[in-house]
Nucleic acid binder design. Structure first.
Lengths: 179, 179
DNA sequence: GGCTACATGTAAGCGGTTACATGATTTA
DNA sequence: TAAATCATGTAACCGCTTACATGTAGCC
């Protein structure tokens, strides 16, 4: 079963949602480490329904607009728990077009190379700022048994990763300028 | 044009190679930030030939085994340079199944959660060790205009990223045990 | 009345993986 | 002579993106 299905089960374990709301979730909180478009989510929900891992109730908004409120079945909850307990092999290093460029960058002039590093740096600095702002919403580390604690750990990684990226880019700029 | 095509052009700019050798390259040095299987590489080489970005010469090994030695055309070199100079938007945070698990990990027992963090930690420590061993081959930072320098920068990122991952995992284990 | 957000779907195509398929060369 | 490596290809399938397609509800 695809990871996306577990992501959907996980989100539905927190709160019953429509496909539309799931799509929004994938574009906000979860998007730091997973994402999906509605064109992928609706078919997956159909499949999960067939597999009896989720069920839905039709609600009417206004006079006739139907929306499907999805929730986990007992079976769905079990499938989620089983996946959560599965030890994962470390993921293969993800593809990275910028580092591919950099790998061939000796074909560029020193100025061009420094320029491309600086362009990445300002973007990662902005991303770091965004994540740090998000972190300020926590005035302390949440208790370990809450979903806020899980969120906090994941956010922490994002911040540390961006700090490292900025540090690395600055180091590279420095080394390029040294000669 | 897909990134894989530029990766192939980049590798061929260093050295003329067969599809088989390109495949090996994608499983060693370059695999830290890009990879591809032979089933994808051979069709891409056919397309690049049609687009007149690469050309090949047939060589005979032994008595009859034909191999195609690919190299860049003038046009191919220009395409590579054009791509190298293209400023890249920061890549979207890559998908990460482990962090997805962790995001839903408040459903686990404290012991189970610590266990999954420790399992990741030993894997990242091994990867860090591997990259550090690789780094020892450089006894100093190579001159900035060489391809070794490009390699060195990319390797440095790998090491810093793994260091950060280990640091983060240790911090998480600590926080999980604190309560 | 018009705009934005809510809400749900399908189709075509791309990049990539896994598996199928074949055969020559080198080395132990 | 058997196994590992060199060498080149194709087919089916999967996950995902982009685009197509439709209609309602709420707000200004």
């Amino acid at each position: 079963m695809s990871t996306l299905k577990y992501a959907i089960l996980g989100l539905l374990s927190k709160k019953s949602m429509t496909g539309y709301e799931l799509t929004k979730e994938f574009n906000t909180s979860v998007c730091e480490f997973w994402n999906a478009r509605h064109s992928q989510i609706y078919p997956e929900l159909h499949q999960l329904t067939e597999e009896n891992l989720v069920k839905y109730e039709v609600e009417i908004t206004g006079t006739c607009l139907e929306k499907k409120l999805y929730s986990l079945t007992e079976e769905g909850h079990e499938a989620l728990m089983k996946w959560l307990k599965k030890p994962l092999r470390m993921a293969h290093t993800p593809k990275d077009e910028f580092r591919l460029q950099l790998f061939f960058s000796h074909n560029l002039s020193p100025e061009e190379r420094v320029h491309m590093l600086e362009f990445q740096l300002i973007q990662h600095q902005a991303r770091l700022q965004f994540l740090q702002n998000y972190q300020e919403k926590y005035d302390s580390i949440p208790p370990a048994n809450t979903d806020q604690f899980s969120e906090y750990m994941v956010l922490l990684y994002g911040i540390m990763r961006e700090e490292t990226s900025c540090e690395w880019l600055k180091k590279c700029i420095c080394m390029c300028r040294a000669e």
